[in-house]
Design a protein around this nucleic acid. Structure first.
Length: 400
RNA sequence: GCUGGAAUCGUCUAGUGGCAAUGACAAGAGACUGUAAAUCUCUCGCCUUCGGGCUUCGUAGGUUCGAGUCCUACUUCCAGCA
């Protein structure tokens, strides 16, 4: 069972440490979204330098390219990507929601590859198998998000998620047993590993590879009775932790999280899937009992020139920054803010230099990682409410 | 000097006599939440009560119901010949 220590509680909020085989995650924590085994525009070293404790990769994208066989050949995704810290994988369930022309049945999801149109199918079993091959510490159960906000559709999606969870748990246990027998939990051939080790100048791991863990995913949309039912069901399956999925805005999130997180066992970690583009998501998420977050928003917005500051998000491409020779965010300790001005960033964006996206991504990712770290510190100090009020009123100004 | 050719938005460019006139770039702004996203959307002559009004295709005339488009002259540029 995944070890999770809680250091302090404040209402539903908690400060803890998730002990993964690849290191500890001090929670609450923001987990960088590394969909295709990379946080776009950033190296793993840059992620470490900006303070990221963990990353989340996506099964769907990695199954399509480069394929799980290649990742196994590389010795697992940690070796392949050079991220040796804690890692999550998403199940591919979200793509059911986001891709067009998917065919959903009780068995699983059929779809055409967005790359070359090839037919693919993901089932709860194949998602588990792929996640074991990828070798992240924490896997998400394969779930179904309803596209509609309609109650009946949401209920069907939730029930399917529960049926699939049963199959995910069974397959996860089977894979764990067979990996234990083979003594090769993380996958990868000895040849590949020793090659990697000599190339990287590291010592190849010996003995059994690390264990891998499964989070159940709570669904139910905006309907708190469905959320409660889903939380009960997921808890009953005794997974290592929980993902809370299908959340798209901070509106109503507090109520939903209260409903769910009162039901979920408090001694297991909870991951709020996909939320964190808006700082308020992180404050509300942490306040109401979520331990980790992932979101593509910060890096996507960075690439598009929308950058966080303590006074709100700014579009660095706007003409008013052309002659602004101040740091993007004076109080920020990231590489971008310590070394460069807004005028320089503006210039890099206007000239479409790659470095624009790199520096912007460093800053935005640092901003959310650091903000959640500060939330953690404020919870430990008993100053969360003040920090939240101060941060949000400054960030959102009059709009709150 | 002669003979051809050309002149359209900030730039390059499309434009059989029939709607301020094409496309690209540049410029201005917006969107983005478990990433089919280094993507997408909008504006881009002036004014507007959003109905429309006004002024435009080097300059000045002309033909025509109607001219960026045809004719004449001029200006500038390009090519060839002297």
């Amino acid at each position: 069972m995944l070890k999770f220590d809680i250091e302090k509680r404040d209402g539903l909020a908690r400060v803890g440490v998730i002990h993964t085989p690849h290191g500890d995650i001090r929670t609450p924590a923001f987990v960088g979204a590394a969909t295709r085994a990379t946080v776009k525009a950033l190296t793993m070293q840059e992620m470490r330098d900006l303070g990221s404790q963990a990353i989340l990769a996506n099964t769907y994208h990695l199954v399509l390219r480069p394929g799980t066989d290649l990742i196994k050949e590389a010795g697992g995704l940690a070796e392949f990507s050079s991220w040796h810290g804690p890692m999550f994988t998403d199940s591919g369930g979200f793509q059911i929601f986001s891709l067009p022309n998917v065919e959903i049945s009780e068995n699983g999801v059929k779809f055409k590859s967005h790359i070359d149109g090839a037919n693919f199918e993901i089932t709860p079993e194949s998602s588990m198998q792929a996640q074991w091959a990828i070798g992240a510490d924490i896997h998400m159960a394969f779930d179904h998000l309803a596209k509609s906000e309609n109650y009946a559709d949401m209920k069907v999606a939730m029930e399917r998620t529960h049926a699939w969870l049963d199959r995910c748990v069974t397959e996860h246990q089977r894979l764990k047993k067979s990996a234990t027998r083979a003594g090769d939990l993380a996958g990868g051939t000895p040849d590949a590993r020793s090659r990697q080790a000599s190339t990287m100048g590291e010592t190849a791991r010996s003995g059994p590879a690390p264990e891998q863990y499964l989070y159940a995913v709570v669904q139910g949309g905006t309907f708190n009775d469905l959320r409660a039912e889903s939380a009960k069901y997921c808890a009953s399956k005794n997974p290592d932790g929980f993902g809370i999925g299908g959340v798209f805005t901070a509106d109503g999130m507090a109520e939903m999280l209260k409903t769910v997180n009162i039901i979920l066992p408090e001694d297991k970690p909870r991951h709020l899937l996909g939320m964190g583009q808006e700082p308020i998501d992180l404050f509300v998420g942490a306040e109401f009992g979520c331990d980790t977050f992932d979101c593509v928003g910060p890096t996507r917005m960075a690439r598009n020139g929308s950058l966080y500051t303590l006074d709100g998000r700014i579009n660095i491409k706007n003409a008013k920054y052309k002659h602004d020779f101040t740091p993007l965010m004076p109080d920020c300790n990231c590489e971008c803010c310590k070394n460069y001005t807004r005028a320089y960033l503006h210039h890099l964006f206007k000239t479409d230099e790659i470095t624009a996206k790199v520096l912007a991504s460093i800053h935005n990712e640092h901003f959310v990682v650091h903000t959640v770290d500060q939330i953690r510190a404020s919870l430990l100090d008993g100053a969360f409410a003040d920090y939240k009020q101060e941060f949000l009123s400054r960030y959102y100004g009059e709009t709150l």
